[in-house]
Design a protein around this nucleic acid. Structure first.
Lengths: 325, 325
DNA sequence: TTTGGTAAGTCAATCCATTGACTTACTCAG
DNA sequence: CTGAGTAAGTCAATGGATTGACTTACCAAA
């Protein structure tokens, strides 16, 4: 920066102010141009560490994930990386371990804010994260005691799925959800019930959110089935496992049983039969969550965010008209 | 740090030296203890930005990926994150865009080193990355003009696959590989040929490394097939797509054609039939690559790394004895 | 001609840790 | 008792950018 100042024949403070667009500085156009040229000629770019030290902002955000290797999260991460870059931040990824410990660490390492994709933490556990003085946005779920969350439109997605099944002629449907009693989750199945009518819908809880647990849930689904002709699954990986379970039990999809799931991924194309899904804008969710977090960091207040890009029904082979039985 | 020094009745330079284990400092055990207590009591931890400024080391590594959402890379990323944390670094993720531009950016942002998972760059393009003065480790492939790469043992993995097919009775096998003429890739199929004998093996090149391209390759495989009873696929996602292509063409796996692929992922369980694979230690690859990169940063010389954990054959449903045709 | 006001910059402290050079008080050999 | 040597610390410059306070020169109004 000193070199730039020298070359432009100004004080380094002018350089700093020009670069950071300080409104309190007034400069002639000529001076400004000299500075900008010097910056270009020396291909100068400010030292992040120095800036971080002075401003006590590191320009780093951490995205904390329960497990890195989950396709669902990746879209979000991808969107978050992109947006972070646009806003001048860098995104560090980390796996969820112990809240208190991790928080201390991030505090110490000068992270500016945290994106938290929890999958399966209850509000108490989340409390630990929110109580620190570090900005945290909880991604992909709603929260009752806080505004710092972001989500996609699950009720609407569930409605889309229900409409699809309804229009195929299904009247009795089971719901397969994850283990938690999370506000977000129940909204999914609530919206779903609304469309198909009020009668009792059997809801099965898988013990997790991954394919294995969906596979394991197949048995329970078949055992408790009473004339239902379709299964609505609230998370794609569960459905992938379920499909395998059904296949091995000799249930043919969609003739015997239709399956539809929330969330879409390329993978849905490659299971057999290809899985009908409702695609949700997870990339945008990542982007908007970063924007929201950065706003918090900058003390611009902002409420919760629900991504407005509409869910898309992706019809593949796992849904069809109910068979006559 | 000043507070700690005050509390321990020493100069802050003593604190600094105790904390960074400077061998040039000599202190009495008592003084050292006082410092350590003060650190604990104030739960002090050094300011990363200040340290970064002073030492011009940011403690940040960037893992550059062609696309974040690929399960293969994720294991590596996961291992890398873990190891980086152990070594006191944080891992930033980024998607591959334009080399020169990205390099400048990382230089400016004070990144200490780069892990580069290229999938499909040729050595020229890689050259751009290697020529800067920034430490770069190219992950998951070999390089001819540089020592800065890390890989897993592909020849051995290919041998395992070949042995498996051989012991099932297959004698004529096709190979489906990715598009590049990369040293790493040909090593895979070379080792493979060695086991099954010298006769010409038909090698099909998919136009990419993802499921779609495997799907597209199915047609070519069937067209060029001449009595081969198995396909060896050098990358799992290709095989996943291939399986779908074969299914749609009415080829039954493994009765008509066995399929075996390199790399394993949970996903292999959920395609139909479940895919037989050779699992490679990608998590360890991520770990060791970080270790290697950090050594480079610290100027400890280190050659290329090949992860020694052995590949594991994972037999699932996509391989079987050749059918009589 | 003086005064006030403003545009255009400049000054210098500050963020916090690191590190080469230096001091001080001892101990021990001669 | 003296000088050399060492253990145990201390001093202070340094890294690069930011920012509140201050200066200087010039113009316009009275």
């Amino acid at each position: 920066m000193k070199d730039v100042a020298l070359r432009a024949h100004v004080d380094i403070s002018v350089v700093s102010r020009v670069l950071s667009q300080d409104p309190r500085l007034s400069v002639t156009a000529a001076t400004r141009a000299r500075v900008e040229n010097a910056v270009r000629e020396l291909s100068y770019s400010p030292n992040r560490s120095a800036r971080a030290l002075r401003t006590s902002k590191s320009g780093l955000l951490t995205f904390v994930l329960p497990q890195i290797a989950n396709p669902l999260y990746l879209r979000m991460v991808s969107g978050a990386v992109q947006k972070a870059k646009d806003l001048g931040y860098q995104l560090v990824v980390a796996e969820l371990t112990h809240a208190a410990e991790q928080l201390r660490e991030y505090q110490a390492s000068g992270i500016d804010g945290i994106l938290l994709a929890t999958g399966g933490l209850d509000e108490d556990q989340l409390g630990e994260w929110m109580e620190g003085q570090m900005p945290v946005v909880v991604v992909n779920r709603t929260l009752e005691n806080s505004e710092n969350w972001s989500s996609v439109d699950y009720p609407r997605a569930a409605t889309l799925a229900a409409d699809h099944l309804g229009s195929l002629g299904h009247r009795h449907v089971m719901v397969l959800t994850g283990p938690e009693k999370l506000p977000g989750w129940s909204a999914r199945s609530d919206a779903f019930r609304a469309v198909l009518g009020d009668h009792e819908t059997v809801e099965i809880r898988a013990s997790g959110l991954y394919a294995d647990q969906g596979y394991a849930a197949a048995a329970e689904i078949l055992a408790r089935r009473q004339g239902e002709t379709a299964v609505f699954v609230t998370s794609m990986m569960l459905a992938v496992g379920l499909l395998k379970g059904l296949r091995e039990s000799g249930v043919s999809v969609p003739e015997d049983l239709s399956v539809i799931a929330l969330h879409d991924d390329d993978l849905a194309n490659y299971v057999s039969p290809p899985l009908t899904t409702v695609a949700l804008p997870m990339y945008q969710l990542g982007q908007l969550s970063v924007a929201q977090l950065v706003n918090m960091i900058d003390d611009k207040k902002e409420g919760p965010i629900v991504v407005t890009d509409p869910p898309q029904l992706v019809v593949r082979g796992s849904t069809g008209p109910p068979g006559e039985r």
